[in-house]
Write a protein that binds this DNA or RNA. Sequence first.
DNA 1: GGTAATAAATGACCCGTGTCATATTTTTTA
DNA 2: TAAAAAATATGACACGGGTCATTTATTACC
Lengths: 230, 230
Amino acid sequence: MKTINNSCTVSDKEHCGCFEKLTEEQKELIEKNQVEIKFKKGENICKQGTFAANVMFVCSGLAKIYVEGPSGFLILKIIPSGNFIGLSSLFEGNTIFQYSAVAYQDSYLRLIDISVFRKLLSINAEFATQIINILSENSIQTYGRFFCLTQKQSYGKLADTLLCLSDRVYKKREFDLLLSRRDLAELTNMATESLIRMLKKFKEDKLIKIDGKKIKITNYDKLKLISETG
Amino acid sequence: MKTINNSCTVSDKEHCGCFEKLTEEQKELIEKNQVEIKFKKGENICKQGTFAANVMFVCSGLAKIYVEGPSGFLILKIIPSGNFIGLSSLFEGNTIFQYSAVAYQDSYLRLIDISVFRKLLSINAEFATQIINILSENSIQTYGRFFCLTQKQSYGKLADTLLCLSDRVYKKREFDLLLSRRDLAELTNMATESLIRMLKKFKEDKLIKIDGKKIKITNYDKLKLISETG
DNA sequence: GGTAATAAATGACCCGTGTCATATTTTTTA
DNA sequence: TAAAAAATATGACACGGGTCATTTATTACC
């Protein structure tokens, strides 16, 4: 199995499989203790420091989760549909959201009562095992992004971000980027001005084509190389 | 509950509590499928990329875990006694160690057969819940370190590292540092030369006293402030 | 459709910190 | 106990990339 050392934290599989490990009765319990909510583009899904009353599941849309500090913030990961938000609040000693989440675009989320979720974990070992899988996978991906953002320099980080968007998010070599330059810079953890300069450099080097919000990966292998060599 | 945004990834509680959720029979199963091994200072405990045959528990000693890339590596966390190594390999789709571990000092570890561990997770929901707690807590701490190493500049990072060593590892304001300057630099994710310079600066500013390997925190509050303001 | 507001782009400048070279001190080994 | 090796320390220098100022393009809104 490959070692992940890029900044992409988008899972290549959906996480809803875990619900299949529930009995009919347990599924019903979840049904009864969840709500489906629409979040508009830019809206806060959860806010770091507030009481975590639920675990959230992204049914459709795209979100970012990030930690805030006294000066600045860091995007931990982006969450496309089919993934959970807030699993780290399952930790019994922790009833507070450790990060904020914001919708990149209009998104539908299912909010599941956290105490019901915890209850199910404590009585259904197979379900718990699935959640452990998700948490473990999540750790590994976070390590990859962590490594990337601390060890690579900006061209490597940007190459990573572009590949992630192409491979995991849009699943196309050419896509309409719904993120602004500023969003892209945040995601790559660099200044917006620097991002623009480097995007321009990639364009000049014929690695990508840019037409406003439309981006096309024209030299995937070279981009991959840049991502790997930092 | 406080938000963690320092680089310290040392848990303030021990993880052996999870074993108490096992039945006598299950405890015995673990007993039979584990070995206790001594690792000498500097020895490899596990190596990134190799087959993960066991989950490890640090009985005594201190270790670092880190991810390696083509150029350079990153210390994810330091593991004192009472903590697991290799839980992220529990993820079913992943039978490979995603990181390497090396002993900072002579350490005793219990190596538990991973398939036995997985088996127990799938039949004992309470045990699984405990492991989920550990994984969740681990995520949160990793996020803290992630934030710190990407958003703070070097003085903040160093203050963080020193506070972590004092508060969590040695649990004293004055301690014999068993790490070299290079180790300390790795841990803080900066060049050894820079670390030495900044350590000197802290000394000149009367935040710490240094006598070779002996370090004393003399102005804890100021150090805390530096850690917080970056 | 015109004006304001926001986003994108570009240049000038500078600062933090890594790299390299070189002492100096400490530890290891013969 | 001398010599070699490694760790610690310090200075000079360079450069990646952040900040700030300004311009141009795009979008939003009366």
